[in-house]
Simulated assay, not measured.
Amino acid sequence: MKDRLTKWRLLSVFAVLALVLSGCGEPFLSTLKPAGAVAKQQYDLMILSTIIMVLVIAVVTVIFVLAITRFRRKKGEENKIPKQVEGSHLLEIIWTVIPIILLLILAVPTVAATFEQANVKEMDKKPNKDGVRDALVVNVRANLYWWEFEYPDYKVITSQELVVPTDQKVYFNLISSDVKHSFWIPAAGGKMDTNTDNVNKFWLEFDGAKAQEANNLFYGKCAELCGPSHALMDFKVETKSQDDFKKWLSAMQSAKAASPTDTAAAQGQKLFEQNCLSCHAVSPDDARPEQARLAPNLATFGERSRVAGILDHNEEELKNWIRDPEKYKPGNKMSGTYKQLNEQELDQLAAYLMSLKVEEQ
Rank of each mutant, 00 (worst) to 15 (best):
K125D: 03
K126N: 07
K126C: 02
K126Y: 00
P127K: 01
N128H: 00
N128V: 04
K129L: 09
K129S: 08
K129E: 13
D130V: 03
G131V: 01
G131C: 05
V132L: 10
V132M: 06
V132S: 06
D134T: 00
D134E: 15
A135H: 02
A135N: 01
A135Y: 02
V137E: 04
V138E: 02
N139W: 10
N139E: 15
V140T: 02
V140A: 04
R141D: 05
R141E: 14
A142E: 08
A142G: 14
A142L: 07
N143S: 14
N143K: 13
N143C: 07
L144K: 14
L144H: 12
L144V: 15
Y145Q: 08
Y145K: 11
W146Q: 03
E150K: 12
E150H: 12
E150Y: 12
E150V: 13
P152S: 04
P152H: 09
P152R: 06
D153G: 05
D153T: 00
K155E: 08
V156P: 01
I157R: 15
I157L: 14
I157H: 12
T158M: 14
T158D: 09
T158A: 13
Q160A: 10
Q160R: 14
E161M: 14
E161H: 00
L162Y: 13
L162W: 10
V163C: 06
V163A: 10
V164P: 02
V164L: 15
V164R: 04
P165R: 01
P165F: 02
P165V: 02
T166F: 03
T166P: 00
T166N: 08
D167T: 11
D167P: 08
Q168I: 00
Q168P: 02
K169A: 13
V170M: 05
V170Q: 07
V170K: 10
Y171D: 03
Y171R: 07
L174R: 06
L174A: 09
I175Q: 15
I175P: 00
S176K: 10
S176G: 15
S177I: 02
S177C: 08
S177F: 11
D178N: 15
D178C: 03
D178S: 13
V179S: 12
V179D: 14
K180G: 09
K180Q: 15
K180E: 14
S182W: 08
F183N: 06
F183S: 02
F183E: 06
F183Q: 05
I185R: 05
I185K: 09
P186Q: 04
P186L: 03
A187K: 08
A187R: 08
A187V: 03
A188Q: 11
A188Y: 03
A188F: 09
A188R: 04
G189C: 11
G189M: 10
G190I: 08
G190P: 02
G190Y: 05
